[in-house]
Simulated scan of single mutants.
Amino acid sequence: MHDIETPSPWMVRHAVYVKPQSELLDVACGRGRHARFFAARNVMVTAVDRDASLLQPLKTVQNVRTEQRDLENDPWPYAEHSFDVVLVCNYLWRPAARELLATVKPGGLLLYETFMAGNEMYGKPSRPEFLLRPNELAQWVYGDFRVIAFDQMPERGADGKPVAMKQRIAAIRNLPEVEGDSPPATPEPGQSGDPAKPQ
């Protein structure tokens, strides 16, 4: 079972790209481990989840605004280019992927981490609709974002044994009409899988 209290190392690692006073959207925030982490860094967090009971403890956290929403059954509620940072952890709803990506401002940051194909060997989620395909996140952002880091590999427990298959990306939305924009970067040394072009 994945940790529901400690911030993901991937999110912590890339927090250096998130400036104080940035507007951050935490999608399907759950118990708010990332909302709390970034709020403590003076980031303005909008924490959204459909479970009101999970949101309740966050209502008293400074720099956090909670919103109860059903992102799977209602229209996507956020305007294009409305957040400096969009963060998603352990959640996948492909029908809203295009709108979710569009929510990131030009020059803004996407932080995304969730389970991928192969996770069925370790437990849930195991259904294909809840598992990313190989290179899928890189394909989503290709052409519109500059990839800072990307990986897809087993997540290991304290004993070093694989406990899940995860895919992760950190990417910055391109600024419009800027000459000399560099193309999407390849993963950092030691990361698996190049960002893939769309099929």
Rank of each mutant, 00 (worst) to 15 (best):
P198E: 11
D84A: 14
C89V: 11
R36Y: 01
Q167S: 06
R133V: 00
T66Q: 12
D181G: 14
Y142Q: 05
M44S: 15
H14I: 00
V48P: 03
D3Y: 01
P134I: 00
D26F: 00
E5K: 12
R33C: 03
G118M: 01
G157M: 01
P162F: 09
L175N: 13
L131M: 01
C89R: 14
A96E: 13
A39P: 09
I4A: 15
P162D: 03
D144H: 12
G160K: 08
Y17K: 11
E136Y: 04
S8D: 05
E188V: 06
L137A: 08
T46A: 01
G108R: 07
S22K: 07
P176W: 04
R31Y: 05
Y78T: 10
M153G: 14
Y122D: 04
M121R: 15
S8C: 00
A102R: 15
F38L: 10
P162Q: 09
S126V: 02
R156H: 02
K124S: 14
P128Q: 03
S126I: 04
P77Y: 03
P162T: 05
A149Y: 07
Q152E: 14
A47N: 10
H14M: 04
Q139W: 06
G180Q: 11
G30A: 04
A196S: 06
A149H: 13
W93M: 01
Y122A: 03
S22C: 06
L110K: 10
A47S: 06
A138H: 00
P198D: 09
H14S: 00
L109K: 09
S22R: 10
A196H: 09
I148T: 08
P20K: 13
L101D: 11
P20W: 06
T66N: 12
I4F: 13
K124G: 09
A35G: 04
M44G: 14
Y78C: 03
E155C: 07
K197V: 12
E179D: 15
R31T: 11
D84Y: 13
I172W: 13
F115Q: 02
Q56T: 10
R65N: 14
A35N: 07
H2M: 08
E23F: 12
Q152R: 13
V88T: 09
W76R: 05
L101M: 07
W76G: 02
D151C: 03
M121C: 13
E136Q: 07
P106V: 03
Q139D: 04
K124L: 09
V12H: 09
L71F: 03
W10L: 00
Q56N: 12
